[in-house]
Every structure is written in structure tokens, then in C-alpha cells.
Design a protein around this nucleic acid. Sequence first.
DNA 1: AGAATTATGTAGAGATCGCTATATAAATTC
DNA 2: GAATTTATATAGCGATCTCTACATAATTCT
Lengths: 199, 199
Amino acid sequence: MTDTEKIRKRGRPRAFDRDQALNQAQALFHVHGYEGVGVAALASAMGINPPSFYAAFGSKAQLFDEILARYAQASPLLDVLDLPGIDPAAALARLLRNAASAYSADPAQAGCLVLENGRSTDADAACRARDCRDASVATIRDFVARSHPEQAQVVADYVAAVMSGLSSDARAGHATDRLIAIADMAALAIRAMLEPEGR
Amino acid sequence: MTDTEKIRKRGRPRAFDRDQALNQAQALFHVHGYEGVGVAALASAMGINPPSFYAAFGSKAQLFDEILARYAQASPLLDVLDLPGIDPAAALARLLRNAASAYSADPAQAGCLVLENGRSTDADAACRARDCRDASVATIRDFVARSHPEQAQVVADYVAAVMSGLSSDARAGHATDRLIAIADMAALAIRAMLEPEGR
DNA sequence: AGAATTATGTAGAGATCGCTATATAAATTC
DNA sequence: GAATTTATATAGCGATCTCTACATAATTCT
């Protein structure tokens, strides 16, 4: 008995599926970016009118926050770091490879929603997206620090920088194998950094 | 006798310095991005009114094109590739280091104007900026191809990806030394790629 | 001097932006 | 059934966007 069946509230029931509407909005934000999508387009894609939009999501900015959190939580990219007893360099290499694949898998949603919107012209949206990014970088840093505390910061920054480049390339329309080649080359520096005295 | 002294044309002379106005516009575009600056702000920074703006530059898009070309031509980053007899890996390592420095040198103009605007929400502006970027990548690829034709494409793509990440980090406010650490680590992959059989 | 040409300032058109006032419809509670 | 609560649709507000119509000022050519 999950609570998927919502308890009926008092007033008039909502005429649309909130979660489905979030999916539509996420797709639009992914394609056009925060600033490239207007409330009119969002509401239209959701099949509703602006007042219903504001009643359900508060504002465009709040909706974006909600979608950022959703996206970050649903992203499986950082899961490789939780595999027990994995070699750090190998884990990060797989992370980059997975990112290269994920970012270019769906041409309609190329790149990373978080990384791409970290450069939005809208100061608030960019700041929120960057906070989201920083949290992921911190996760990577802590992961590396468990075995290589000295190099943890640089390695995490480096991985994030490469991911940013991969996301940008994906949005430029580059094919998956081209991105994977970059990711694999980038892994060379990670191995050199984490296993300096040849195995 | 350079032709800096412009030949007087027929009608009323322009009341502002066109080149100086371009500088103002470039600074604004660098800080706020193509979409973050309006014609009103551009004209105001130039000390003119919209009609003079359109008479002198055609449109916001045309002005941006002109500034992109200006910026790319004035950028000294790719000059290291022209140093005679330089080691390819060392040249690219220096290129990345220089980019890390340049992108974070002036906090008021962090990152690369071209790379940052390649992700603009405005389709035209993003496309023009990406064309500009592609030209630079081609230059790097040709440079690498002279000594390592097989690896030229990946290495050039990789360098561009790292530069994109550096630019993004610079815009996020990261300090120069943090960027340089990333650049130096990135250089490890270049050396590993171009000198595979240990020196 | 007068005609032709170019630049300038004022003022605003037309579109889109995020957002909301208002009235009505559909559900629950009393 | 009446009161309460919540969602919906229509319509539009004020701000901002790119860009321009218009009249006027400043220069060169004849």
C-alpha cells in the first residue's frame, strides 16, 4: 500500500498530473535552457494555463529549483563511486565514460541540465545550478580523498571540468564515440595522478 | 602615414568613436553574455541612442558577430602553436596554462567570450560562437597532426573540452591557481597521448 | 548658397516577458 | 443544501525586448 493514491483534499481536484507536468518542463529546460523557456511555453506544454501553473509551482524559478533537485537525484552518474572496493581511477574513468554516453544519448536533451544552466544569464538560476554542481564535485572530492587526500581537490575539479567540456560538446551535436574518445583520453591524467609510481 | 586618420565622408560625422564603442560592447557581452545585454544597455554604455547604434552596427546580432571576430583575432592564446620547433605536448600544456590564467585574470571578464556564448539560448548567437570555436579547434588539430596525425582529432577535442571547463570554472569565480592546477593535470593526458613510449 | 548625404535625439511600435485580478467550476465539510 | 476550499479559464498589467518613423543637425559636393 504505497501512498501513490493521493488522499483527496478539500477543494477542486487538480486536472493534470503534477509529475507528468514536471517531466514536460524538465524536457523544455533541458532543450532550451532556463531563459529560453517562458512561462507560456511551460504552461502550454503542461496543457494548463498560467494561473494553474503558478498555483502548482509557485514561480518559474521555484519550478526550476524543483526540477534541478529532481534531475540531480535521478542521475545515476555518481553511482559508480558507491561500488564497493572499486579502484578510484577506474571509477572516475567509468564516470567520465558514462557521462559521455549519457550526455549524447538523446539528441533532444543533449548535455547536462545542471552544467549547462550553470552559465545561464539569469543570476539566480545560474547560482542554483552551480550549487547543484558544487555538491556533486564535493562528492567526487570526498570519494578521492578516501584514498588520495592530497590530490582529491585537483582531481575532482579536473573531472568536473572535463564533464563540463563533454556536456558542451554534446550540446554542439558531437557524436557519442567522439565524446567517449575524449573521456578515455581524460582518464589518462586521472591514472597518472592517482598512480604516479607505475604499477 | 597610416590610414588611422579617416577620410572624411559626406554627411554628418559620427559623434562617437566606433572602436571605443566596440570595446564597451565587448565588455558587456563578456560579463552578461549575448542574451544578458539589451540594445538599450549597449547604446547607453556607448553613450549613444538606439538609432545611432543601428546605423553604426546594423543590429545586435551583427554587432556580436563583429565582436566575436575581434575577440578571436586579438586573443593570443593560440600563438604558442607558432613558436618554431616547440614540442607539441609542451605547447598544448602551455596553451592550457595560459588559458587558465587569462580566463581568471580579470574577474569582471571571467572565462572565454567565445566558449561561454557557444551555449547561449539564442540559437544564432550560439551558432556563430561555436563556429568561432570550431575554427580554433581546427587550428589545434592541424598543429597536432603535423607530428601525430592519428591522435590529432582526439587531442584537439580534449584540449577544447578542458578549455571549456576552465572557462566555466573561471565564470564560477574560481581562483587562478585552482584553474592552473586543473590545466597542469590535464597536460598529463596530453603527454601520455603524444609520448606513449616513455621518453 | 543650395542640394545631397549622413548622424542624432525623441518617442514609440509591436512583441514577449513573468505574473496576477477576477470570476467561475468542482470538490469536501457542515 | 449552504459554506468552505481549491483549481480553472479569460483577460490583461507593467516591464522589457529589438528595432524604427520622424524630424532635425552637421557635414560635403556642386
